[in-house]
Every structure is written in structure tokens, then in C-alpha cells.
Amino acid sequence: MMLAPGLGAALAQWLSHLRALGGASENTVEAYRADVAGFLGFLQNHHGEGFGTARLATLGPTDMRAWMAHERGRGLSARSMARALSSVKSFIRWMADRDGFDASHVLLARAPKYQRKLPRPLSESGATDMIAQVETQAMEPWIAARDAAVLTLLYGCGLRISEALGLTGAAHPMPEVLRIRGKGDKERLVPVLPAAREAVAEYLRLCPYPAEPGQPLFRGKRGGPLNPRLVSGAMARARMALGLPATATPHAMRHSFATHLLAAGGDLRTIQELLGHASLATTQIYTAVDSARLMEIYDKAHPRS
């Protein structure tokens, strides 16, 4: 549904505000746009013609319940509903500040509860076995070394796959500390273990394409940027060979980095900074993973009479 001009303009201004001041990535901005556009489109259809920005100041609990019932009715999960409500609250809060109205009825709306899925890290041996396995799979030695180097960075530095594949030849030779630009265009400093530096150096020694500052560090077979699907495919073959679950994905290597660091005594604030999480609450999920693994070990090992 096309939004009324006033609503569309307000949404566009809010998104510009997010880009300018919020440091949000384009993917995040697009998710916000879709959530809020869906909300405004529902209100426009629900209230009929003439619904504009002035009516946003009059929204009440029945409007919010009607919208949420509509979204759940079309199959939106509780998790997605919570995200959409968060987007809507952010937009309405901005509108209330701009136009000077009380947005309490919207801001007090409660999202449905959902069970947050815990990350599924690999064991320490599973992570190292995964790296060793991908190093044996490719027919061409440089591609095998490349895949191993990428996974070593994911596990050894806690990088996202997009961050690892976003590195350029300027990162060669690999420094002891990498400056990573992550989600929301936020920068962080990440120590690079000797094993990761050695893995990247070995890949570049074998790679037929030179490491150039303006070119991707990790190359595809024909010299272009390495497609993340190729990394996922290499891990899929490796996990089948190793008997690992389908959750053994590139992102699981990052989860493994955080979980193993926490188990070794790392503090949450440091792990938050290394992962580039904006909120400590996001990092705290790994304490639940650690506790769940502890209870699993306890259940297996505890003697029963």
C-alpha cells in the first residue's frame, strides 16, 4: 500500500535521521523502514482515508493491539513481532519529540514473549577440527589454504564472515591488531593471534593473485572477491565429514570464539568490545550458553545412585 504523502515524508525523514545520527547500517535502516511502513500502512487501511501524521498523536492501546493481532495473523513470529514493535516505538518516539505529543500508549505496548535461541558454538576440538578439515578439501592448495585462513580469522578473532571477507590487501602483512569496521559502521580493535597471522601468510604465499591495498584480501578462483557462500559450502562439506551438526556454520565459529573465551575466564565487557556488540545484553547470551554446557556436563558426569 502506498503511504499518504505526509506519512511517507515523515518516515523518510526519520530514516535520514537514523543514517545521520544513529550510525545504523543500511541493512538495519531497511529493516526499520519495512517494519514502520507496514505499521503505517495498517493504520491507514484500518482507519480509512484521511489518516495522516496528526492522527499518530491519538493512537491508543486498541490501535496497537489491532496491529499486533493483524501481524500475528499473517504469520509473524513472536521474535519478529518484538523487533517490529521496537522499530515502531523508535519511530513514534521520534515523532513525539518532533511534534510534541504524548506517545505513552505506543511506548507502553508490550511485545509478545519469546524464547531467545541460544548460539550454537562448536567445541574447542570441533572448531580446530573444522579448520583442519577444510584445509584438506580443495583440489588447489591455495584455495584450501584460503578457506582455512578465513575460518581461522573467524574463530581466532571473532570476526563476522562479512568482516573477514571485507579485508583488503592493505591488511598484509597481517598486523598484531586489526582495525575492523563492523555493523553500524562502528570501528573496533581486534588482536590477531599468531596462528591467524600464519594462516593468512600461508594463503597469500600460495595465492596466484597479489595482495593489493585496493583489492580484496580473500579471492575467488578467478580473482574476484570471495563469495561467502563458498565458505559456507566448504564448511558444509567439512561438517558432513566430521559428523558435526548443521549449526556448524561460519557464524558458529564466531560464537565459538566468544564462548571459549568466556569459559577461559574472559570478562563480558572485553568480549563485548572484541565482538563489536553495541549492547552488553547481546554479549550476555554467551553466559547462558556457558551455563547450559556446564549443566550438560554435570548431567553426564554426576554419579546417580
Results as ranks from 00 to 15, higher is better:
55 R>V: 05
65 R>A: 14
76 L>K: 15
62 T>I: 02
63 D>E: 11
54 A>Q: 11
66 A>N: 12
61 P>D: 04
60 G>P: 03
69 A>D: 11
54 A>R: 13
65 R>Y: 02
61 P>Q: 02
74 R>C: 03
56 L>S: 11
76 L>S: 14
96 A>G: 00
93 R>H: 13
75 G>Q: 09
54 A>N: 01
58 T>D: 15
70 H>P: 05
71 E>M: 15
69 A>Y: 03
92 I>W: 07
52 G>A: 09
53 T>K: 01
83 R>V: 00
94 W>T: 06
95 M>D: 06
90 S>N: 13
57 A>R: 06
52 G>M: 07
82 A>S: 15
95 M>E: 15
62 T>L: 03
80 S>A: 14
83 R>E: 13
86 S>K: 04
85 L>S: 10
80 S>L: 05
93 R>G: 09
96 A>I: 11
68 M>C: 01
71 E>D: 10
66 A>G: 15
57 A>I: 02
82 A>M: 04
62 T>M: 03
86 S>Y: 07
84 A>C: 13
79 R>S: 13
68 M>I: 06
74 R>D: 02
68 M>Q: 09
70 H>F: 15
56 L>G: 12
86 S>L: 09
77 S>H: 09
87 S>P: 06
76 L>A: 15
93 R>Y: 00
74 R>P: 08
81 M>L: 15
58 T>S: 13
61 P>V: 01
72 R>I: 09
93 R>F: 05
57 A>S: 15
79 R>E: 11
89 K>I: 00
91 F>T: 07
65 R>D: 10
93 R>W: 00
77 S>C: 02
79 R>V: 12
71 E>W: 10
64 M>Y: 00
94 W>N: 06
81 M>V: 08
89 K>Y: 10
63 D>Q: 02
51 F>K: 05
83 R>M: 03
95 M>Q: 15
84 A>S: 14
63 D>S: 04
89 K>Q: 12
51 F>Y: 12
94 W>Q: 12
64 M>V: 00
61 P>W: 00
65 R>H: 15
67 W>H: 04
53 T>G: 04
65 R>T: 13
79 R>F: 03
88 V>S: 09
94 W>F: 14
94 W>Y: 15
55 R>D: 01
52 G>L: 04
72 R>T: 14
88 V>L: 09
79 R>L: 08
68 M>R: 06
79 R>Y: 07
